[in-house]
Nucleic acid binder design. Structure first.
Lengths: 235, 235
DNA sequence: CCGTATCCGGGGGGATACTG
DNA sequence: CAGTATCCCCCCGGATACGG
């Protein structure tokens, strides 16, 4: 945090002194999305070093945006929770995200999309209510991604929530999803639909027909998917 | 602008790559407030070097947020206008400002408030409709500010708009406003009222009674004044 | 799992001077 | 008025290794 402050009384400038440092906005987004544990936060900001993450968390705490709590029973475990001020920051994050969704040309960013991050975000928005009332295991295969990050399992269990695995959990696979990372990202961001990707042969579903047909329901999208892009894509 | 990008497809992260560099948020605020000329922008971000201002303007242009136009008749004069994308950024600036107004403790910032910046902001929000339909000249005296920035004249003319002068324009003075910089800033930010400052003897008005009595009307406040602070001030 | 400590390079950006 | 040009320091933040 630069003590080289803007020296302005304007609330925008004062808030900008917090938001202006690298990674802070993205980190707050991850906190607003619900992550509370250090390693969960890491998954949402994978390219941020642990040292910097730790530093930013202390800064946010000092600014009264988050609160650090010990997990009961284990004093070396901690959780980071948004304060009232932090929850109120959701409005800021949404405004920023809506602007980005509407005005930033995405082509470039789609190409080097990180599968781990995509799956981490997708996991969070899976709509269990649209899945059968039993354990459902969906295997995602990305055909254009390095082998060690190409295959993911999303296990939805009415009792345990949704789990994301990079190792085969060994369960029966209800649905196989085969696609490339760019298509999957575009769908999740609301720039393409399951239906259109299927008819383009960019997306292949095999397995349980009901689960396959319901994909556009149980696959929740990005919070910003509803906001239509206002600029034409570059290609 | 760091090419060291966040490498995330999330719209929040993509927008944060623009907003995250120093001064950018404050500069966009000034653009949203209506400044279009280089030197007008400077007055809104007085501590920013011209070199950096120029650089940021080029970046904003590259991002499609502003458009640089030549002033007709003089090709060496330029104006910076928000594009549609830039105008849409107003929502982001408002969200940030509202958050700042509600949650940031202002005490520290009020103390080193810059009178030039305050007057520049105040000038913009003067409500001419609440002033007599003639030229009105209000002289502000700050009793705790270095001599060369202590005295300002605000000249409102129905035909020419509102002008701000640091040199005596020589007109008859309709109203003298005597106060300290902290009080004036607090009033403009909505943290104090003209009435309360008068009764505290922090503010002294002399001259035309009508203009004095109407001050809380013609003195428009900060855009963020209506939003109530959610945290108790530190002192 | 949950961080801290330390090193170190690159560049962001402040200051100053100068031009058309 | 509207910027460029240049210097150069400092510190942000990436990388790596290590402790509880």
């Amino acid at each position: 945090m630069p003590e080289a402050t803007y020296n302005q009384f304007c609330p925008v400038a004062m808030a900008a002194e917090i938001l202006g440092s690298r990674w802070t906005i993205v980190l707050i987004r991850e906190l607003c999305a619900g992550s509370t544990r250090f390693n969960d936060l890491r998954r949402g900001v994978p390219r941020m070093s642990t040292a910097l993450l730790s530093k930013r968390l202390r800064e946010l705490e000092a600014h009264g945006i988050i609160e650090r709590r010990s997990v009961e029973g284990n004093s070396s475990q901690h959780e980071y929770h948004l304060t009232a001020a932090g929850k109120d920051m959701t409005d800021v994050i949404m405004a920023i995200g809506i602007w980005g969704q509407r005005w930033i040309d995405t082509e470039l960013h789609l190409d080097n999309s990180d599968p781990a991050l995509l799956m981490w975000d997708m996991r969070r928005s899976i709509n269990q209510g649209a899945l059968p009332l039993r354990r459902v295991n969906v295997q995602f295969n990305f055909n254009d991604v390095a082998r060690n990050e190409a295959c993911w399992w999303v296990v939805s269990d009415p009792e345990h929530g949704v789990d994301l695995c990079l190792k085969d959990p060994g369960f029966f696979v209800d649905l196989y999803v085969e696609t490339d990372i760019k298509t999957m990202t575009a769908i999740w961001m609301g720039l393409a639909s399951v239906t259109s990707a299927l008819s383009n042969d960019k997306l292949l579903l095999s397995g349980d027909t009901d689960v396959a047909n319901g994909m556009h329901d149980w696959l929740g999208l990005s919070l910003f998917a509803p906001y239509e892009k206002q600029v034409a894509p570059s290609d």
